[in-house]
Design a protein around this nucleic acid. Structure first.
Lengths: 356, 356
DNA sequence: TTGTAGGCGTTATCAC
DNA sequence: GTGATAACGCCTACAA
């Protein structure tokens, strides 16, 4: 036998006032419209009855759902849980809740989830999935719903966004490798239609150029997704070219993990025969053998800052879109070392003595 | 300039019918009340205008929010993302969305999140946090809101639940270890106030008893949480007792990872000097060195089944609570091996020749 | 088969 | 400062 919920009416009756007055007393913004005495009576009555405002009715009236739609590629990517936690924790502080939608990188699914959220009248969106050109963006904006980008930026910086300084991060990675003595450095770049993939690739080229090093095509591979499988495929491809390299900069940690698999398969040891550097400092990546050298930043903070930017918009903040860049930090672990003096895998292979 | 949303009224006008008729035509359950011809006209009009029913208004009227509250300890625990994905995917198929709340094992926070969800009129709860005795349970039930337990069971099996067969799993683990030749097996048990921790500990005792082995107190430690830190602390404690053991069964993979750290610190190699077995087969646990032997089950399926159980209740299904046990599968990887013939760490230590 | 009317619980806009 | 009233968008007896 479910207990009947207590409503505003009941509180008002107990306090001996009209529901409208009770509403005013209960709402922080309008409390000053009501005499302190009445306000206290109402508050007391509400407390006594354990009154909880009906958020649904309130939403219908105020046209604000206090709900945010969050689109991410896949919660299973360890990068996202901490980001989502940051987002939720910050939103909660302002009475908002997040609706999480996974798109699996599938446009159709993304659209479905987006519509689903629109039907639920979310007050804003946080998108971690945006391709550089994404119809959803223009659509949301046309509907007057605030949008913040996370881990992504818009081509023209027209949207509030939070991201790590990807370009700078990869330059740091390259500089780390060159200072160890590496000159033949391969690159596994992420998808070039998302800003992260693009910026990191640009950082790689810039870092190499600054060191006066070439980037021959056979040391370059483009992953079609930030996945372990693609990392594996790409490094295999580079190894198959049969030209020597002593280090590889991966577009993110998942790709780097794929590199580990390819190296295992090829019988190459990391870091002795091949250094690997990733990006993101994903949870648990420090537990691998060898622990991965990578670029760290506060994932949690990406979430909290994105929430902050959105809340700013929701409370009427206008003005040009802010684009926040977090500073990456190079975490040197066991996957990078000076290049071996020994004849490299590739030379052994040429002389027919080794390799798979 | 936000576009005005299109409402039922607009669809009705375009189709030349009354809003009530349009409502009936649009709602699958009532479509048969309307002539096929009108229904088609309405559907066409809705499509043309891109009509999306206002979920908020609908909720207020029908008193169903099509929203489910999901309480988990922490999304950062890699066990949960796949479970949550399963849950969300299954719920989505029936038009429900999940509100995820992290409790961080904190009762006050759990209550806050729970109330927050109640205010939003969630239609049901899925709890992965429930302690054996939890006031929230009785409260939700009294309010007439369906509850399903996930990865947990109620003391008296009074609530629908989905869980892996924990006891059986640990018995399998122990049997694996004994068949390798281990006899001196330590146990790091999880918290005993959650069903998971309790059932696995029971499984351990049952497995040992079946093998005719003793469980001396110095080979037993109770973790206060399923965390890496606690796993580390507990194995240190067991090692400090200075009595030989050749294998350890950890209450879950996080605890097992903590064991890895303690072993590293003690200069003990796994599996040569100490076998370790976990529970859960968490994502990425197979990438550790050595890859962890553990008990696997489909996390995703825990989510989908919990969703199924809840949806059953929501659509009026009554009857006794179903308790679903998934079958665990032992995944033998590199962290377990026969006990070394060599003098063990402990003996070396006693004779003063080794150890940290 | 379709139209009418009322209400879900709250808040905004009037009066007083 | 407080009360009355209407409306948010939809659904559903009930009437026709």
């Amino acid at each position: 036998m479910p207990e009947p919920a207590v409503k505003l009416r009941d509180v008002a009756r107990l306090a001996g006032v009209h529901p409208a007055t009770a509403s005013r007393a209960l709402n922080p913004d309008t409390r000053l419209l009501v005499s302190e005495d009445t306000a206290n009576r109402v508050l007391a009555a509400a407390a006594e009855l354990g009154y909880q405002p009906n958020a649904v009715a309130r939403s219908l009236r105020t046209r604000r759902s206090h709900t945010i739609g969050v689109l991410i590629p896949d919660l299973n990517n360890p990068l996202f849980p901490p980001i989502v936690r940051g987002l939720e924790d910050r939103l909660e502080a302002d009475g908002y809740v997040a609706l999480i939608g996974n798109t699996d990188g599938d446009d159709a699914r993304e659209r479905r989830v987006f519509e689903q959220m629109r039907a639920r009248h979310v007050d804003g969106y946080v998108l971690a999935t945006a391709h550089l050109r994404n119809p959803l963006l223009t659509e949301a904006i046309r509907a007057g719903v605030p949008v913040v980008l996370m881990n992504r930026i818009a081509e023209d910086n027209s949207l509030p966004s939070v991201t790590v300084d990807n370009e700078r991060g990869v330059r740091m990675a390259v500089s780390h490798l060159t200072s160890l003595g590496h000159r033949d450095i391969a690159c596994i770049a992420g998808p070039q239609d998302v800003s992260t993939g693009l910026a990191r690739y640009r950082g790689f080229r810039a870092g190499m150029a600054a060191a006066g090093l070439e980037v021959p095509a056979h040391r370059l591979a483009f992953a079609s997704a930030f996945s372990i499988e693609e990392g594996y495929r790409c490094l295999r491809q580079i190894l198959a070219a049969g030209r020597p390299c002593t280090a590889v900069a991966a577009g993110n940690d998942m790709l780097a993990v794929g590199c580990y698999l390819a190296l295992d398969e090829a019988g190459l040891s990391c870091p002795d025969e091949m250094s690997v550097v990733g990006f993101n400092d994903m949870p648990f990546i420090n537990m691998l053998r060898p622990p991965l050298t990578t670029l760290a930043f506060s994932h949690y903070q990406v979430g909290t800052q994105a929430a902050r930017l959105l809340l700013e918009r929701l409370s009427g903040g206008a003005g040009p879109a802010k684009v926040l860049y977090l500073t990456p930090e190079l975490i040197v672990r066991g996957s990078t070392a000076p290049p071996a003096r020994l004849p490299s895998y590739f030379e052994l292979k040429k002389s027919g003595r080794g390799g798979p």
